[in-house]
Design a protein around this nucleic acid. Structure first.
Lengths: 182, 182
DNA sequence: TGTACATCAGTGAACGCGCGTTCACTGATGTAC
DNA sequence: TGTACATCAGTGAACGCGCGTTCACTGATGTAC
């Protein structure tokens, strides 16, 4: 297989996701992680150089999964309002499927080790979104993209808390975007 | 005066503000605080029951100051687009004046002790804003208020990072709101 | 004015605790011959 | 097929460290008489 050698590593990351849905990221201790994963404490350091590397890996896995979903949903579309709509929907549905959403979106940027990674992902999202906004002919596409990302994250957090899609919030976001001056 | 007895307490809170502008809230240790304030460690516990109470006090002071500014700026106005504009402007200018903005808005909600307080302030803001949106005849005022708060916080963070007003972002927000269907 | 006492913000050494990290060791698996 | 050896994920006791919190004490200030 070639994957068998990563079973324990994956188990540790899964343990992090499980615990992150209960506590904040900062409270995720190596003690808790190995207990949840059912391995010895030393095993943690077989797979990760330190706690920081682990958090980076957790963050990366979360966003890679999201990114895959969004790419799949939008790959055949040209930039424009339709792609914008599908990107945001794929992002929100993807977040709702991941139990660690609250921890990653809420806590990650106040973890010093992750701040740069979070900012990087954010900048990338803003860039992609601003292409769609520009293609839609909307004024101030960069700034609007910045705000659309903020709104989308907020909706993802609300939905994650509620445990279901919040259609009214999504509609409010799309109304803002659709009505924006061109 | 009657305030002299709070000099040390205020010094401790000021120390927190100074340090929070450098590190994350979670890294704010009692050791650091008393060192920065120039008092002994035991003094901390003369004024605060524990670290949690201190953080709550820090958070409260931040928001009380903001709230005062907003009230002053809007007290004579009836609900509507003008009051909405002034509220948001007062909020953003107030945040820009407080060095702890990044720490409070970014880190506070992932500090378990503060989560309830943060959610309370947020709910209150959404309520107030939705009155203005409703008075402006905008559709889905509650949901829009939710999103406007998210955008405003995001702008406050960006401005706090930049150290100055970001007019283009503010304009983008006001365009979203002004153009929204009624 | 002088003396005795009460108050209480401030002190800092000491505490137990849980943390992240290390490392000598184990034991299952694969390879060489 | 059987034996000797190498590899390496996994183990868990032990470590030093910094944390939040405690508490017996200090010493300046105010009050009583």
């Amino acid at each position: 297989m070639g994957t068998a050698e990563h079973v324990t590593r994956t188990a540790l990351l899964d343990a992090g996701v499980a615990l992150a849905s209960l506590r904040s990221l900062h409270q995720l201790s190596v003690n808790d992680l190995v207990k949840q994963a059912g391995v010895a404490k030393g095993t943690f350091y077989v797979h990760f150089a330190d706690r920081t590397s682990y958090l980076v890996a957790l963050h990366r896995r979360f966003h890679d999964e999201l990114w895959t979903r969004i790419s799949t949903a939008t790959s055949t579309l040209p930039p424009g309002p339709e792609r914008l709509h599908r990107s945001i929907t794929a992002y929100l549905d993807g977040c709702l499927d991941q139990p660690a959403t609250r921890a990653i979106l809420f806590d990650a940027h106040s973890e010093p080790a992750l701040r740069d990674h979070v900012n990087g992902r954010n900048t990338q999202s803003i860039k992609v979104l601003s292409i769609d906004l520009r293609a839609s002919g909307i004024a101030r596409p960069s700034e609007k993209a910045h705000l659309v990302v903020a709104m989308t994250v907020e909706i993802a957090l609300s939905e994650s808390r509620a445990g279901r899609r919040l259609g009214a919030l999504r509609s409010a976001l799309f109304e803002f975007v659709a009505a924006s001056p061109t």
